[in-house]
Amino acid sequence: MSAQISFRNLTLGYERHPAVHHLSGEVKQGALLAICGANGAGKSTLLKGIGGALKPLGGSIDRHGLDPREIAYLPQGAEIDRSFPIHVYDMVSMGLWRRAGLFGGIGRADRTKIEHAIAAVGLEGFETRPIGTLSGGQMQRTLFARLLLQDARVILLDEPFTALDAKTVSDLVDLVRRWHGEKRTVIAVLHDFDLVRATFPETLLLARTPVAWGPTAEALGPENLLKARRLGESWRDDALPCSDAA
């Protein structure tokens, strides 16, 4: 498999402070990659960088010709305004943005796709429900249905299974496996190591700097986990310029 995304000495961060520091490596096309690490390890920052929402402080990200807007991104749920008066059906239909854009109509074929996506996540009958009345699991299913419609080659998931019941997690993990079977590249930020070991063949363990990147069993080995814990978070106002910076 050829590379889908390559990192070359990548540093991402905020106000010159690195949140991801000197990351190099590549994600193959069709990879199913988990990103693990403690809070503040740079996991969500890395997804934002891949999605093009954050520019590198140093190094580069090569998407091999893929426009960042063709990457599907599922952010953490807190960033969605649940009080907005919009129904599940309309929320899911946003996944057609790439095809419909500002003015494109939603025809019969599109409506069928929307209905299939809603059915695929088990939300039939919820089409006219305002998103503010959904449970956390139902909202997450709605967002997965939107991802289905986006039909993207690369899918980024930021803590997609947090605070969900076992049945919902199982259903959504099945969707992730389906994407993997369709040779899509899936990169997910996760905290549940058991789930990662059971589902994701490849893992990047981050502690701002990359601790390990490879087969999940090795990356999440005891030595690497201990090393990640020691590195921890680091933000100092009096930090000096990085000597490795280009």
């Binding site: 991104y73 960033e79 943005w97």
Partner: peptide, 20 residues
Amino acid sequence: VVWRPLVLECVDPTFLASVS
């Protein structure tokens, strides 16, 4: 003209930024 991005920016600005 701006109806769709206006709605998207209200309900899910991160998603809008990722697609447009």
